[in-house]
Write a protein that binds this DNA or RNA. Structure first.
Lengths: 148, 148
DNA sequence: ATGAGGGTTATAGTGACTATAAGGTCAAGT
DNA sequence: ACTTGACCTTATAGTCACTATAACCCTCAT
């Protein structure tokens, strides 16, 4: 921990300006990645302090948190850019965002199915290869079997 | 469909030489990707016919199928290269392959957990945004909430 | 004043493709 | 015979979302 009042980041006492490193710690996004997002237009160019360092406030943390969550949910940066754009226009109907969420949900569920199949296959493979030698090991065979 | 006898690929009648396109169709791996694998050393340089075209037999299809399955299971090409190398030396103990499988299984299960969380959040988000306007929509809010 | 640990830029590299360009080959139809 | 179109060949460049590196500046404690 660097500064005395930076620890909580819920401490909205005096001023809440953060350096890029503090924002990185608070948001769980690396500093380089934050700069990358700025360059990609996902974050506005940050306000600079006298020495040229970037300074961030709670709004930026919020926005960055949103981005990080979306990334974790599997959204591409382009999708996120669009969603941020939509969200900035408060009068627009929510359908488009909702549509995206639905599409993403479909994707997530497809991946879940894939992973379930993967898991099953891996479990089968581990049990078939206990303490043996590759000559008897069926792993490669099992994974190269042509479906016929 | 191009050639007359290419359709079945289970037809092991006369000769079973395939062009790269046929192998691509049979293996569900794009031709460009097959060439890429060759360049990366995952596949041996293919035998060439008189005109310089690549020709493949069933052994290659098997190997490629193995690679594709591994990719689907989330293995990196480096891992696959090693596993192929291990599998080619039939006297070696299976432990190393097994170890990899175990590691991969752990990865798969971690992703499953992540996806489950994602799904939950997405479901929550879709229900909170039905027919509204962004001003009332909680999606962006929900995904930018600082955990406190 | 020195060194550690921040910050700044720009550029190059990563993995696993994907797209493009520019050409050679082949079977079928007119 | 010729053209069309689908296939094959190579090489190179682009993609995405970072990640690493280089080379430098700023600040603070010892």
């Amino acid at each position: 921990m660097t500064a005395t009042e930076s620890e909580g980041l819920a401490s909205k006492g005096a001023n809440e300006w953060m350096s890029i490193g503090q924002l990185a710690a608070a948001s769980d996004v690396q500093a380089v990645t934050i700069r990358y997002y700025e360059k990609q237009g996902l974050l506005d160019p940050a306000h600079r302090s006298a020495n040229g360092y970037r300074e961030y406030g709670r709004a930026q943390l919020k926005r960055l948190t949103f981005i990080r969550r979306c990334r974790r949910l599997g959204f591409a940066l382009d999708d996120i850019r669009v969603m941020l754009g939509l969200a900035d226009q408060h009068a627009l109907p929510c359908d488009q965002v909702d549509e995206r969420i639905e599409a993403q949900l479909a994707q997530v569920r497809e991946r879940q199915r894939d992973l379930a199949a993967m898991e099953q296959e891996l479990v089968r493979l581990t049990s078939c290869c206990a303490g043996g030698v590759i000559a008897q090991c069926r792993i490669v065979e099992a994974l190269s079997q042509t479906t016929e």
